[in-house]
Nucleic acid binder design. Structure first.
Lengths: 122, 122
DNA sequence: CAGGTTCTCAACCATCAGGTTGACAACGCG
DNA sequence: CGCGTTGTCAACCTGATGGTTGAGAACCTG
């Protein structure tokens, strides 16, 4: 099993790895907008922006509804949680480790400089 | 100059968009390891893993030191903050917007009661 | 219905990303 | 010193990504 959420994570991170797409998200955070409105400030074709929006949509970051020939784009903040959870998990783990190492070094400072660079502690 | 931290964000998000690299980060969160140790579980060459580590390093997620011919890899959790901050900013903005919309709809449900008085039974 | 507006789809192209293999640098050890 | 161990670098291949243009679907409006 390839873990369902792994793929979502991959798509979300990949989606946000592009500056244009991050900017789109940033602008959508303050309100929905149509494709044309979103495309206007960029020096690229409308089609290119449409593609970017498709990527964001497939990552679950955005939903496109239908209003006549307009496609209002709406930011869907839910997926952010997935990322934040992933990040926080390992960040905290790493920081915890860091604190322990810190304490260990403090402790060793009392003793002689016996290079304890042994690994294989598992 | 395209904004210093934008480039870092791009590199961090791109780095974590790969499942192998996310797994490396996950494993490094519980302790430093050498390239060989890290490469062992994967069905890919050592060189490939070395490349992945380079990407993580250039994203600032990892540092490689030098111990004889070994290169112990260490997870550097600091950069996570950059991401979390970016994410949280827009997530909160979007959620705030959502709450306001919600309130608006609630409000309308209260005092528009005279408009839909007729069920329009058709 | 004709015509303008808004947007997506398809084909194409250049560049990048992730993998391979082969060569070799740097180091510890017998 | 010579050799095995550990890891990087370089060249190469393939598929994905980000952009383009052209065509046309879908919809309002006159």
């Amino acid at each position: 099993m390839v873990d369902e959420s792994a793929e979502r994570l991959t798509r979300v991170f990949a989606a946000l790895a592009d500056p244009t797409r991050r900017d789109l998200v940033a602008r959508l955070a303050s309100g929905d907008a149509t494709v044309g409105e979103l495309a206007e400030p960029y020096d690229m074709s409308l089609q290119a922006v449409s593609k970017h929006l498709k990527v964001l949509e497939e990552a679950g970051l955005v939903t496109r509804s239908k209003d006549a020939q307009r496609r209002p784009v709406h930011l869907d903040a839910e997926v952010f949680d997935l990322m934040t959870k992933w990040i926080e998990r390992y960040r905290q783990q790493a920081e915890e480790r860091y604190r322990r190492l810190d304490a260990l070094l403090d402790h060793m400072a009392d003793n002689t400089d016996h290079t304890p660079t042994r690994k294989d502690a598992s």
